[in-house]
């Protein structure tokens, strides 16, 4: 049977990749970066075969012509998207279409109406965490399943809905008959705002509580409304609800492996937390 071996919440701001490189090389000596440079090694020790990466698209694959609330990749491979700078020179990400379809066949009948994508280019929301976790290999050491969430156009799915989808994905993964080791990665955040007169908003008190409660009290985070998230975390930081999908997929009791927080990475407060099921 498949096993969920790790859950990680991590920011996906593009500048995080270079920031982690600078910290790993010793060029940046900020001790707050340690958890970000260590998380790839931590994840490798859990030996995942597949990573489910929960992210949002930033106008690369989905324009406002078509905004799926939850869109899951079910492709054999995924290309990095051209977001306006040209297509990044990265290897294609190998998919696990069989496991994607197992998730689809499990959660849609439960009432989570996913949009199914047999072709999907993935943008920095996906590729930044992959770079922080796995570096820049010639070939990716894991298969991937992208899950894109609309956190851009309101009404976005509530934190509660995200958490419940995570619970359903956890049930789906645990019922997969193959011996597959799966890590679930929730991306985005932490507090930041990229629009309006409040651009530059950072809320370290909220972020620190979120980092703690995503481990110990996800129910409370699931009870916050969309305006609450925008008010507290910023209009773009509200994407933190995606971490709740990851958290839901894990069991009720988890142990945090590592946790870190740094201000700023570009215009964003960046966070990382890694956890495993307890016992």
């Amino acid at each position: 049977m498949a096993e969920i071996v790790a859950g990680i919440g991590i920011s996906h701001v593009p500048a995080l990749g270079p920031a982690v490189d600078a910290a790993a090389s010793g060029q940046d000596t900020n001790p707050d970066m340690k958890a970000f440079t260590d998380v790839g090694t931590w994840l490798a020790q859990t030996k995942p075969d597949v990573v489910v990466v929960i992210y949002n698209d930033h106008g690369a694959s989905f324009s406002f012509d078509l905004v799926p609330t939850f869109a899951i990749g079910a492709a054999e491979s995924y290309l990095p998207a051209d977001e306006g700078f040209g297509r990044p020179p990265l290897p294609a990400y190998p998919g696990d279409a069989e496991l994607s379809w197992h998730i689809i066949d499990s959660v849609v009948p439960e009432g989570f109406d996913l949009t199914v994508c047999q072709s999907l280019d993935v943008d920095h929301g996906f590729s930044t965490p992959m770079k922080v976790l796995f570096g820049t290999p010639e070939a990716w050491p894991v298969k991937v399943i992208p899950l894109a969430v609309n956190v851009v156009q309101q009404p976005t799915p509530s934190a509660r809905r995200c958490y419940e989808l995570g619970l359903a994905i956890g049930r789906a993964l645990r019922s997969y008959p193959k011996d597959t080791r799966v890590a679930v990665i929730g991306t985005g955040g932490m507090s930041h705002q990229l629009q309006g007169e409040r651009a530059g908003h950072i809320n370290p008190d909220f972020d620190q509580q979120f980092l703690s409660e995503i481990v110990n009290d996800p129910e409370n985070l699931a009870s916050l409304s969309n305006p609450d998230y925008i008010h507290l975390a910023g209009s773009e930081g509200a994407e933190l609800v995606m971490w709740l999908i990851m958290r839901g997929a894990l069991g009720q009791n988890v142990e945090a492996g590592l946790s870190g927080y740094v201000i700023p990475v570009a215009n964003t407060a960046a966070g990382v937390v890694a956890m495993q099921n307890a016992g």
């Binding site: 851009v152 309006g196 305006p227 925008i230």
Partner: peptide
């Protein structure tokens, strides 16, 4: 525990919430 401010979209200062409008 994170407290709930219970605001509506239009009460958030300096913010243009990207909604249907």
């Amino acid at each position: 525990m994170v407290e709930k401010p219970n605001m509506s979209f239009d009460q958030i200062p300096g913010t243009y919430v990207f909604d249907g409008r």
